[in-house]
Amino acid sequence: MKTKHFLAVIALIALACLGALIVLRLRSAGVIANIYQDGTCIRSVDLSKVAAPETFTVTDKNGHENVVSVEPGRICVARANCPDQVCVHEGWVSGGTRPIVCLPAKLVIRLEDKSAAPGADAPDAVVG
């Protein structure tokens, strides 16, 4: 196979990625910050209803601690005891679909349309 064939495939993938980035950026995110630990939502914060800045700590059973700060309309991880500090460097998040991820603590913070905390969106009844 010729080099240009491979380069064409690579260019197509690059274009698809750029397109996906633009689509993800244009799509507006919700204003409910859902905090997932190990796949389950442990807390939901409606960023549009935050009156005063608030800080709380999320801990896991392996000793990881993420200090989450909430201000009106935005959320961030202020401090963390993970080695890479990727979640802290993400900074304030107020929109967009890109989540804050802390891999060592298995923590994901996403901005979504509705609350995913246990009980907040539970079905009224399950039939069948």
Partner: peptide, 23 residues
Amino acid sequence: AATLVLKSLAVWYYCPLLLLSGI
């Protein structure tokens, strides 16, 4: 691997950025 560890598909938002940087 991150999908399996975190049990969440959220990490795939990074996919376009990661592939571009990978190129």
